[in-house]
Write a protein that binds this DNA or RNA. Structure first.
Lengths: 227, 227
DNA sequence: AATTTGACGACTGTCGACAGTATGTGGCCC
DNA sequence: GGGCCACATACTGTCGACAGTCGTCAAATT
């Protein structure tokens, strides 16, 4: 339950604590379902409860922590098949909308960035670096949201991204390394650079379908294991 | 022996402060762009800064307040044409998705609730009650999101709803009473109860288009007035 | 033995005070 | 007279302590 206490190099302690907490959740240092106690964590981080409290609130908004009732303690969000399904169905809708919005704005910079982020993803996969694999895959998908130039959409994507990371991280930690296949984004890239928006929509639905299936399979396996 | 026990009253000061703040922003008591000072507000509400701080964070997440940089003060969100456009485009996407998801779940209860909420909206319009008009119109549109049974979607809707309320409230306060026309939701209701999902999609785009035009027109007018 | 009741412990909610930072003001140098 | 720097000020960020609430467990009652 005690997480390693490192230096908090951020500007405000709230942000530093939020980052540290996020990392602890995503690395599994704080396992899904585990209780989060303010005083304990505050002491571990070497800060007072006030800024940690605000950090906890932020993580609650991001969906990485959950709180049942008012005085009930908060805990790390458990993995749930329903939430996973919601995550992928909503994400499909949002990402299609992102492509529709960004479609006519795709310029040389966009194409270059897409290639660069894909290269980073491949490098992370080759390096067998799970954390980097997750980060780079999210960065790859995040590009469209940025290119859409739509603040609210970007915010919605961030809200989804956090939870998504939680599921992927748990997945990677469980099996040794069933990350995305090296060629998993070839079609995505081809269509994203192409001229057929409808084909992109179909590819997105298909891509999400596959991703959801993987996550659901993992959750079921895990449930049996725990039971 | 069991007494009908339900809605526990407000317990935490944070929630009460958040409600009070929300009301103050939406009624224009705190005008768009106005600075929000912790100590002042805390004294005004008769509470300490700690719970008020958390309430402010919550309103920041809802988009009713904005904060520029780290130590910079927070202020009431100003009205902005770009944000208004984003609000309506994203809302169109989400509401279409909500109808797609809820389409096959529409049962007798759904149809009854839709009619009931529409009746409440009409009553509010007839009563010339601006606040109730906004609330009931949002409740009417919110029904589909609830019927979709999709937690994340509902959360996304709430995030949009708060900002939307801000624009509508400002609009209502500016002009005497240019609320929605009495027949503004007739087509919406007819298609929502009908059997043609594509027709519903078209109606939604059209409905949003009209709503956005109204809000944009208001913002431009207001800008001239202020300048 | 099962159920109720009371006290204990742990934790969250709240408070008042202190420290650090950004902004505006006045004086000082050029 | 204009620009730069020290200073005052107001506000946010942070802290340690206190109060209220919930869950648990054991004693008492039936």
């Amino acid at each position: 339950m005690s997480m390693a206490a490192q230096p908090l190099p951020r500007v405000t302690l709230r942000e530093g604590a939020a980052d540290a907490l996020r990392q602890a959740v995503l690395t599994g240092q704080l396992a899904p379902g585990a209780a989060v106690v303010e005083a304990t964590l505050a002491r571990a981080l070497g800060i007072s409860r006030a800024p940690l409290r605000e950090a906890i609130r932020a993580l609650l908004e991001e969906g990485l922590l959950v709180q049942s009732r008012a005085w009930g303690g908060v805990s790390v969000a458990p993995l749930d098949a329903t939430v996973a399904r919601e995550l992928y169905t909503l994400r499909t809708t949002l990402e299609i909308f992102a492509f529709e919005t960004a479609w006519d704005r795709r310029d040389a910079a966009f194409r270059a960035a897409l290639g660069a982020r894909h290269a980073e993803l491949l490098a992370a996969i080759d390096a067998r670096d799970d954390t980097a694999t997750i980060a780079t895959e999210l960065a790859l998908h995040g590009l469209v949201y940025e290119a859409a130039g739509h603040g609210l959409l970007l915010q919605a994507w961030r809200a989804i991204r956090g939870r998504l990371t939680l599921y992927w991280a748990a997945h990677h930690q469980a099996h040794g390394r069933p990350g995305p296949r090296r060629d998993a984004h070839d079609d995505y890239l081809r269509h994203a650079l192409g001229h057929d928006l409808d084909a992109m929509r179909i590819e997105l639905r298909d891509h999400m379908q596959r991703g959801l299936a993987t996550v659901l399979h993992f959750i079921e396996d895990r449930k049996e294991h725990t039971a």
